[in-house]
Design a protein around this nucleic acid. Structure first.
Lengths: 108, 108
DNA sequence: AGGTTACGTACCCGTCAAGGTACATAGAAG
DNA sequence: CTTCTATGTACCTTGACGGGTACGTAACCT
């Protein structure tokens, strides 16, 4: 949990995860997406691995990374405690909008 | 997003949020939940405020904190890209369990 | 075997973050 | 106006983190 959220709290690592939604990728392909040097990418990949968010497979010299979404399910479950709260307010907002529908436009 | 995930990536701050699900609390009450000194708590509360995760109200000398779950909805939305993936695997697991139902017990 | 390719690790540096102690501020109470 | 209470800010120290450069390693190629 701690490790997962820490891993997610970095733009570069989220970029990697987002890329892996589309399917596996080699370390080199992932590195090409980021504005930093290879070793930095390797370190980010390590953090993701240790958080259980990615898996590695080796093919020749290449390391092929793939997504392991399970830890995200844990985050999702934790978020569940809060979901009712924001939905409550979204419902209130929707009701508000429905009530005042075309009474005023572009109010701010 | 960055600020919110960074805020969540700390045990103390998650403890505060979890406490606020039950309702508002003063800074002192929140500090009592944590094993660190008051000034540390004040700083954590500041991080949460700047991430938009809590709101403050003042009553006499007390600051009353309450939850602002909206930023969590944004995280939830981001997680949405991955939800299908882990559910897919959970479904597979369920199918597995259903298929092998009472063939073996307490296998690990 | 030697070179090339694809990664990772080691090491250094600057920055940020979390914790603590001391102090400032604002309201309440006398 | 002084004192007590509740909370935040200033400042310092330490440890982690992200980035870079240099180097190590393992697999393929000739």
């Amino acid at each position: 949990m701690e490790a997962v959220l820490h891993a997610l709290a970095d733009e570069s690592r989220r970029t990697v995860l987002d890329a892996l939604v589309a399917g596996e990728a080699t370390a080199g392909e992932l590195a090409a997406l980021l504005p930093i040097a290879r070793p930095g990418v390797s370190r980010h990949l390590r953090v993701l691995r240790e958080a259980g968010l990615v898996e590695v497979r080796q093919r020749a010299q290449q390391r092929i990374y793939s997504l392991r979404p399970q830890p995200l399910a844990e985050i999702d479950e934790w978020l569940g405690r809060y979901r009712a709260l924001w939905q409550q307010r979204m419902d209130a907002l929707h009701a508000e909008v429905a009530r005042g529908r075309h009474e005023r436009r572009s109010t701010g």
